[in-house]
């Protein structure tokens, strides 16, 4: 099932991302997990967009029936940008937390509870 390879990769990446988020205790590693999970979704959407024999909609003289709607690509680009913004904001929070708490271990970042 060679054509299912991207989807298998999506599942693997999702599991790796989830496991990283839940099992690691270091904030930075958790963010890496979030990033891997985002990549899994991006790969999923971009894999959906593949059409056999399709032509990228950038050639002016191509046969218009065979052109592929670039929606999944546009979605993925947007999602990548959002992912970058999210990870950047998370990392900047981690910097402040490390400065004030002196730790990046999630088990010790629990001033707010109950």
């Amino acid at each position: 099932m060679f054509w299912n390879l991207p989807y298998i990769a999506v599942v693997l990446l999702s599991v790796i991302g989830l496991a990283t988020i839940l099992l690691k205790r270091n904030l930075i590693k958790i963010f890496l997990g979030v990033s891997i999970l985002t990549s899994a979704v991006n790969l999923f959407i971009i894999a959906l967009g593949y059409r056999e024999g399709g032509i990228a909609p950038i050639y002016t003289y191509a046969v218009s029936e065979n052109m592929v709607m670039a929606t999944p690509q546009a979605l993925t680009l947007t999602s990548i940008v959002i992912g970058v913004a999210t990870i950047a904001l998370m990392l900047s929070f981690a910097v402040i937390i490390y400065k004030t708490y002196g730790t990046v271990n999630v088990d010790e970042i629990k001033e707010l509870k109950e």
């Binding site: 999210t86 998370m90 402040i96 937390i97």
Partner: peptide, 14 residues
């Protein structure tokens, strides 16, 4: 707030 607000923001963001 000595990092506490940032902790809350991070939890919300995550």
């Amino acid at each position: 707030e000595k990092g506490r607000a940032v902790e809350a923001g991070l939890k919300y963001l995550l």
